[in-house]
Design a binder for these strands. Structure first.
Lengths: 231, 231
DNA sequence: GAGTGGTCTAGACCACCCT
DNA sequence: GGGTGGTCTAGACCACTCG
């Protein structure tokens, strides 16, 4: 683990442990650099990391301060991870509806930058939070990047498998949010009456070297999901 | 303007001007540092900026590459600005429905961290894109931070006024997204039938020194709005 | 004016990719 | 093994805040 990451997580632990409240001032960067025995720039980098995660904010000429925790029960829209990790602080359960390998449908091929002859794994799952339906997930993995999946993997934390076993690191992602009415298919799985609201989030995940390997369509139950976004 | 910002915007211009496509490789950091006569770290900082904006991605050991432009017609969920700037590439019009100074209602006071005796400006506006209703905006400005607003300012770009005239810089923001059915009030302004879907985005904007000065509730017309989010 | 974060440099070394 | 980005340092100087 890199120095600045280690320092960042230590400072983060200190904040949560001491339960520092909104506006509490942290030691200045020079002090911290001596405390941790690193260059001042390394401290600055660590604090930048915490700032980008919304834990602190910095005011030039004044200091570094703790930022108030956000509302509870909201799903964060950032964080490049699959469901199981992103929502780990919730009581999350998943159920696989279908799992197979197919030729990439047109819009999937377009988003994964491949041809319609390329193979993709298609997985459909339903996710539950506290035994309430959270969303229907329809997701496609490019076989050329993710060469193997099976029922067991698909039933658990797919992203953990991708990162830990396949050693593929997620580089970045695009997300598109569209509010709609449920159609027949989603209506059934979300157990919502006809014409109910629904949030569709389309996501494309890229490896570190820019290869789009995962395209997802997530249909969220409007009563059981709310989202959060910082800075 | 700082060196790394200047360099970032020059590189950005070069990308758009030469219309470089997905995966095009930029010169390496050493070359760029000589080209622009700055330290290599300054180049790295400039590229970090562009990466955070989703224009490029960097691969350790390989190089820096141009990232594909995102879909058109989506409203970006990041960007700490008011409507008029955020959507400037659209044909945006706004109409003021009401404007007055009131005591902060309970939930407004909670979000702006003030008491219910504190004064706030309340502004209601409807925004149009290409003459279609985009959203109903209900927004509150803390008078202690924003001491003056009038009809003329409220009819235009409020954030331009706040930043340029009042010299208040926006530091960070929280956004909460909730999908709902329209209620009577929003139904009327969005011209949508009863029980139509709607996206509510609650936003809190903070000054650079952590003072929450603006709380907004934005009710989006589900057929005329789609949103976008990177990394 | 003292304190504090932000920028910038030059250079060393590390980690990773690709051929 | 050569090329490339990422980290880290020590130190100089700048920009801002606040009493």
């Amino acid at each position: 683990m890199l120095k600045y990451q280690k320092i960042a997580s230590e400072i983060e632990m200190k904040i949560t442990k001491l339960n520092l409240s909104q506006g509490s001032k942290l030691p200045n960067t020079k002090t911290l650099s001596q405390e941790y025995n690193v260059g001042r720039n390394t401290i600055i980098k660590a604090l930048e990391l915490l700032e980008s995660r919304g834990l602190i904010y910095q005011v030039q000429g004044s200091g570094t301060f703790v930022r108030q925790k956000s509302r509870k029960g909201y799903i964060t829209l950032l964080a490049n991870h699959g469901y199981t990790e992103n929502l780990s602080y919730f009581d999350l359960k998943s159920k696989v509806i279908s799992f197979n390998m197919i030729n990439a449908p047109k819009n999937v091929a377009a988003n994964l930058r491949c041809t319609m002859k390329d193979k993709v794994y298609k997985v459909e799952r339903v996710h539950f939070v506290h035994d309430q339906i959270l969303c229907l997930e329809e997701t496609y993995y490019k076989v050329s990047t993710i060469p193997f999946l099976n029922n067991e993997i698909v039933g658990g934390a797919i992203y953990k498998y991708i990162e830990d076993i396949l050693n593929i690191e997620v580089g970045y992602s695009d997300k598109y949010l569209i509010v709609k009415k449920v159609d027949d298919h989603t209506s059934e799985y979300l157990q919502l009456p006809k014409d109910s609201p629904m949030l569709l989030i389309e996501e494309i995940y890229y490896t570190k070297n820019g290869d789009p390997f995962n395209f997802s369509k997530n249909y969220y139950h409007y009563e059981h999901s709310q989202f959060f976004l910082q800075s």
